[in-house]
Amino acid sequence: MIFERIRFILGVGLLAIGVVTFALEVLGVFRFKYVLNRMHAAAMGDTLGIGSSLAGLMILFGFQFVTLKLVLVVIFLWCASPVSSHLISRLECTVNEDLKKYCEVKSK
């Protein structure tokens, strides 16, 4: 009984963290002015938000075959999302001429 309650609280807490992260992500994507800042907000939602909300779902569901699928979804998203963000940021750094206005550029 007490174990069930702890599990419920843990799952709901992780889910709440995920939802809050998503809310922050949406806010950041619409409020930030510069691409790299916006992308930081978006990538945060795709990694931390997805990870914590799916972890909450896994804890709530218990150990089943669905859990394995959720783990695979998390692994796939954690592989795909940072790589795509990296590519976009690299393109931005290559193309933008006044990059120094927005962030500090280390010369090689």
Partner: peptide, 17 residues
């Protein structure tokens, strides 16, 4: 022209995925 070419991170993740 501006696309990142032979990006190590993309290649590694593509090799796995």
């Amino acid at each position: 022209f501006y696309e990142p070419k032979s990006d190590k991170i993309l290649q590694t993740s593509a090799m796995i995925l």
